[in-house]
Structure formats: C-alpha cells, structure tokens
Design a protein around this nucleic acid. Structure first.
Length: 199
DNA sequence: CACGGGATCGTCT
DNA sequence: GACGATCCCGTGT
C-alpha cells in the first residue's frame, strides 16, 4: 500500500540525493474541491548558502525566501516571470535553506481536470512537462507556500511511488548567471519518461 | 526543428 | 527601475 512521505524523508542534509529520491514519487493535490495527481519525473536541487543559483544564496533571508529556512517538508511556491508559479519542496534541517524544484510530472489521476486547467485537450508532454505548467496542471499557486506536504489533510501532499531504474543527471536550466554553480549536474530526470521539459 | 521575442508582476536594489 | 529557477507563438529552414 502506498503511504504519504513522512517529514523525516525531507530532513536529510543531502539535497542533491533527495532530488533524485523524489523521482517516481506522487504529488497529490486537493484544490478547489478537485483531487488530481502526477508522478514526479524531473527535479533540480538548490543548495544555499553556497549555491549561487539559489534564491537563498549567501543565506539571504527575505520575506520570499524565509520559508526555505524553516522545517523540512513544506512547499515553497514563487512567481516567475510574472506568470508562472514554480513549486519547490523545502528540505534539510532548519536554517539550511535547501529546496528541490519540481520541473515535470506524468499525469496520473483525474487527467480530465488536468487538461481542463491547462486548456489542452490531449495527453502530450506539454500538458505537464515544465515547472510552470505542472503547477497550473495541479492547481498550485503562490498562495500554497508553506503548505505541509506530509499531512494527509493538506491541499498538497507527496506520496510514495515506484523507484525509477535509470536516472539522467544534467545541468540545471535557466541559471546561466550562477557562475561556477551553473555546471553542477543537479538536474535529474527519469530516463525512459517522455514527461520531461527538455532532453 | 531552431531561433527570437513578448507577456507580466512580485521582489529586491 | 530592472529582472527573472518560464512558456508560447511566430518566423524561417
């Protein structure tokens, strides 16, 4: 039987390994009375304070980044380019501003609702492959920042799933400004999946 | 299929 | 006042 991931899952100090372990897990949302879910197929690790690609680089604490310094297993959702809501999982002990950006999912339950939210009719990668579109597909927005992911009563939860056999490691997307940190192979995706934002 | 650019707004300087 | 941890659509090949 599948079970919800406990808070202890998120508490590891090794965010790079956690990003890989999240592949195959299942995000379940219960938002506006509609339940839907998807299998995580692509992730990226962000490791403040040293990681220049992280919003919390150099332990920069602002109203926006504060949640990343809190306890593990909560959602960090922020607005990107004024349009897209990007969903992250906060990991590590308190005061370690680690997070995993979820970049793509494979639609699982209530695909009708997912297609309706996306205004796309058809099961193709553009439906849920990409950090902005997966949030839209599951109904996630910035108001969900702080949501506890290990509570079955929460609007966003993450459940156990099938562990993938082959994982591809690659550079993170869209962080060219991060100098030496831009070349870290901290983006991970399931090799055989078609639900990937970019090969 | 590769590219180039516009959309759009909260956040931080 | 500038700029994104993006996406989509238009153009040209």
């Amino acid at each position: 039987m599948p079970h919800i991931l406990p808070q202890s899952f998120y508490q590891s100090t090794d965010v790079v390994t956690l990003a890989q372990q999240l592949l195959g897990k299942v995000i379940v949302t219960n938002i506006d009375g509609i339940q839907s879910s998807g299998i995580i197929t692509e992730t990226e690790a962000y490791k403040a304070p040293e990681d220049k690609a992280s919003h919390a680089y150099n332990n920069r604490r602002t109203k926006r980044t504060e949640i990343m310094f809190g306890s593990a297993g909560r959602a960090y959702v922020y607005l990107c380019y004024g349009i897209h809501h990007l969903f992250n999982v906060v990991t590590g002990p308190e005061d370690h501003a680690h997070a995993v950006l979820i970049r793509a999912i494979e639609p699982l339950d209530n695909i009708e609702a997912i297609m309706e939210r996306r205004r796309i009719n058809g099961l193709k990668p553009q439906l849920t492959a990409g950090p902005g579109v997966l949030s839209k597909a599951l109904g996630i927005n910035t108001n969900h920042t702080g949501t506890i992911l290990f509570d079955p009563k929460s609007p966003i939860q993450i459940w156990d799933g099938e562990t993938p056999t082959d994982i591809v490691h690659s550079k993170r997307i869209g962080i060219d400004y991060a100098e030496e940190w831009k070349d870290k192979l901290w983006r991970f995706y399931i090799k055989d999946s078609q639900w990937i934002s970019k090969k």
